[in-house]
Design a protein around this nucleic acid. Structure first.
Lengths: 125, 125
DNA sequence: GTTCATGCAAATCGTTTGCACAATG
DNA sequence: CATTGTGCAAACGATTTGCATGAAC
């Protein structure tokens, strides 16, 4: 068996399953601290890495911000609020045809794409 | 006058005007060192920051990599080679209608978007 | 001669790693 | 008991900053 059970790893996964925001490692750490007074930030990073490796969660890399994490694994796009920094999923379906079009216009193989939208979230607009 | 003339800043701008790759601060530093033996990496970073602030160049933030820079200022998309890490511009026109569609599907204001395509560049495919 | 640019070293931020000990299976 | 998980501190890579000196205007 490659992985044993870990209370903190289970909690991370659970927190990500029950939030729509896209917390950073440090934000998760802060949210867990009440329950895990001796928790170390390194443990959070290590467990996030394991969960990503397991395919249970995804790392989201966005302009300027530290890495964020989410448990929604179907491909989707993100919107970043330029006022408050909030990150939200965008309810617009992923257009695979874009990849085909780029392939046609270049000599490259294109396997996927990511889109980040910038603007103001509902609270800020 | 807010900015004075600077040989190293001019050279940075010039190098970015004459390359299609998207160099990092350190790559620029290495390319300049032959001409500027006492150049400091901090100067490269400072000048890149000034050029971005002036709107002369753009900072390109891409998955995993350190920040990259380019002098092409018209909006365009990027493709990252998952084999060699090369970054290239994509000859597909920017679709502003995407922003409108996201606005319609949310309560957000959307001002722009960025797309990164992933795959294999011509040399690697 | 005031302001901006530079080199250098130190500081910072986010993240990773080494190591000794605790928990899991 | 063999292996994985954890805390802690130290190491790390990319970038920024403070400070004293040098160049531009």
């Amino acid at each position: 068996m490659k992985y044993k059970k870990s209370r903190s790893r289970d909690l991370i996964r659970d927190m990500l399953d029950h939030t729509v925001d896209h917390p950073t490692a440090h934000e998760l750490f802060d949210r867990m601290r009440p329950d895990f007074p001796r928790l170390s930030l390194a443990t959070v990073y290590r467990n996030l890495g394991i969960l990503v490796e397991q395919g249970a969660i995804a790392r989201v890399e966005l302009k300027g911000n530290p890495e964020r994490y989410e448990s929604r694994m179907e491909p989707h796009y993100h919107l970043i609020c330029e006022n408050c920094g909030a990150v939200r999923d965008v309810p617009v379906s992923v257009d695979d045809e874009l990849d085909t079009r780029v392939e046609a216009a270049t000599d490259c193989r294109v396997t996927r794409h990511e889109i980040q939208f910038f603007g103001l979230c509902e609270s800020c607009s």
